Amino acid sequence: MNWKPEIDALIARQHENGGPFWSRSDGNIHSPAGFSTIDVMHTIGLLGGTAGDIPIVSDAVGFLETYQNNDGSFSYGKRKSKLPCVTANVLSVFGRLGVSQTDAADAAYAWLFPRQAADDGWRCATVKQGKSQEADASNPGTTMWVLDPCCSGKTTRKRPQH
């Protein structure tokens, strides 16, 4: 199926949130839910668009990379925390858009792997699951985003050892 009209419609709305590439005017790339930079780029990838085929998507990938911190993690805004769920979601976007074999992706995975939870998943610490040891577990969404590029065969070039 050809999803070009839908991809073109999303691209036409890239300034709707007030900032570049579906970001808000304050630079947030993770909000509003459902139509943020991360969400729209993920959707374009799910519809078959790639950074190699669509120049504006390639530019948007470059924009996303400006949110990478020196340690490899990604933040959703210029003054926001480093969260495994945001880093994992960006990695999923990279995989879907065909740009997961980059230095940026390698650094992000290198940051994520040591943060793996005892149950072998990943957790976004903003979710409060309780104070008991049994409640200190991974989040399904964060774990799925980490694994998504691996499952689709679009993994990083290097696999950090943990």
Rank of each mutant, 00 (worst) to 15 (best):
C150M: 14
V57Q: 06
A110G: 07
S100N: 15
D103V: 13
L112S: 02
K78N: 07
N69P: 01
V61W: 02
D53I: 01
S81G: 14
Q101R: 15
G153D: 06
G18I: 11
H30G: 13
I38V: 15
Q116P: 03
G27W: 03
A137M: 09
K80I: 09
Q14T: 08
D71V: 07
A117N: 12
A137N: 05
G52Y: 01
Y67G: 06
A105S: 10
P20D: 10
A137K: 09
T126H: 10
L64C: 12
T126R: 11
V146T: 06
D120S: 14
Q133C: 02
H162V: 14
I29K: 01
P32C: 10
P55K: 11
P20L: 11
H15Q: 06
T155P: 06
A105L: 04
A110R: 12
D8I: 03
Q101P: 05
D148G: 01
L10F: 09
G130W: 00
A60I: 09
F35D: 07
S138V: 08
D39V: 03
R157L: 11
I56S: 08
V86W: 01
S92M: 00
T126P: 02
G141F: 00
F21S: 01
G121C: 08
R24L: 13
A9H: 05
Q116A: 07
D39S: 13
C151K: 05
G52C: 07
D119F: 02
A12T: 05
S92N: 10
D106R: 09
C85A: 15
Y76V: 06
E16S: 15
T143M: 01
D71R: 03
Q101I: 07
R123A: 15
M144S: 13
N17A: 06
R115Y: 07
G141N: 07
I29G: 04
P84G: 06
R123T: 11
G121L: 03
T156E: 03
K4P: 00
P160A: 13
I7G: 03
A107P: 00
E16R: 15
L91P: 00
M41L: 15
D119P: 05
S36T: 04
I54T: 14
D119H: 07
V61Y: 04
V127H: 07
T156K: 00
A110V: 02
R24I: 04
R159F: 10
G98K: 05
H162C: 15
S152R: 12
T156S: 13
H42F: 11
P32R: 09
Q116D: 03
D120Q: 15
R159C: 05
R24Y: 04
V57I: 14
C124H: 02
N2C: 08
I44W: 01
G34P: 13
S58Q: 14
R24V: 08
S152K: 12
W122M: 09
T143E: 02
D26M: 10
R96S: 12
A104V: 14
G48A: 08
A9K: 08
G52W: 01
N139K: 00
G130S: 10
N17D: 02
Q68K: 05
S31M: 06
T66Y: 00
L46S: 11
S100P: 02
S100F: 00
C151N: 11
A60L: 11
G45M: 05
K78V: 15
Q14R: 15
S100Q: 03
P149A: 06
S23N: 04
